[in-house]
Nucleic acid binder design. Structure first.
Lengths: 181, 181
DNA sequence: TGCCGTTTGTTGAGAACTCAACACAAACAA
DNA sequence: TTGTTTGTGTTGAGTTCTCAACAAACGGCA
């Protein structure tokens, strides 16, 4: 992991934030490269030093969120379900603008699928294979079932402006996931 | 007025903000150049591309506030007292962190004097010389009197966390200033 | 006194960014 | 159709910023 130039970090951060902010106003397709540059207070040409085009930028933005979630996974999987989920719900809360606009936008299905894949990957290692209570259950079905439920709840929670605190959500969803896996 | 490079504007902005933020924690003398660089997320050497040292930076920071106030002066002096003062109190409110720390710091007297000078300069053109009610009053005394009162109220208002809204302050102080000038 | 850790101010090479300009494509109106 | 507008992607010269390194000054402290 080479530490990257301070300027690079700053402009990439600004560009990603700009996209998120703009997506709460316009749909992603309506956003022009110039819009992003203005919002980020960066020269238009600079964007092309980091990304192919605005789709690439959005892709990298999603990617960085997934990486962030992945990093939390490694850290949190040592805890029990209820406590381990807290940081995730806090993360969703902190970045609710991103997730809500992404899940509401025209490209939502593909983003939703990407999130589902990520979640399923994480759940794969959490299935109870020892007690035998899942002996006659198919793994793919179990994963699809729980991941869909989990993502669905997240989606609902964010869409409704996070009516309950992360701690409570973590406890509730944690209990349900524990039963399912 | 040459428009300056986007990068220059950004770093100068970041540096000024950094100083203000740090002054709410430490006294200005305790703040190191490295502190400012860290807070602004800028390389230490970069500071010297714009300022002689941290004192010069503080000086320019003050200067830019005075210019800001001066620009508002030209715009607001066409209005009556009560309405013309509103933007000023709003400005003080928006930048209360700067003014409160400046007026509380060790260098406060010099800053206070600078503010007084600025205010007196602005009041100079507002003295009523026509009605005759000020005929036997000395201009210097009047200016000193009103400016001290004005600055004193501002200081009190900010020190006490702005207990009344800008509009109300503008109305009250406006009425009093009108009587005095 | 001399040593030591910290802060300061400066330097040079190289990377990143700016800005204005350009050619091109798509959308759209006359 | 033609002309106009708007957005895209690229280029090159010039400026700004980064980073690591350096010498020098400062303030304890033994």
């Amino acid at each position: 992991m080479v530490k990257l130039d301070r300027r690079v970090a700053k402009t990439q951060e600004a560009l990603k934030k700009a996209v998120i902010d703009l997506m709460s106003i316009k749909s992603f397709d309506e956003i022009t490269i110039q819009d992003i540059a203005d919002q980020a207070n960066v020269n238009r040409g600079t964007i092309y030093l980091h990304y192919q085009d605005k789709y690439d930028l959005l892709d990298k933005l999603i990617e960085s969120h997934m990486n962030e979630l992945g990093a939390m996974d490694e850290w949190a999987c040592k805890l029990d379900w209820s406590n381990g989920l807290v940081p995730f719900f806090e993360y969703f809360e902190n970045n609710h603008l991103f997730f809500s606009t992404m899940l509401a936008s025209k490209g939502a299905p593909s983003f939703r699928n990407r999130l589902l894949d990520y979640v399923m990957e994480g759940f794969k290692g959490e299935i109870d294979r020892e007690s035998g209570r899942n002996a006659d259950l198919n793994e793919d079905v179990m994963l699809e079932y729980t991941a869909t439920a989990y993502v669905g709840v997240i989606e609902w929670w964010i869409r409704n402006n996070m009516p309950y605190p992360p701690q409570m959500m973590a406890r509730q969803v944690g209990a349900l996931l524990e039963r399912s896996l």
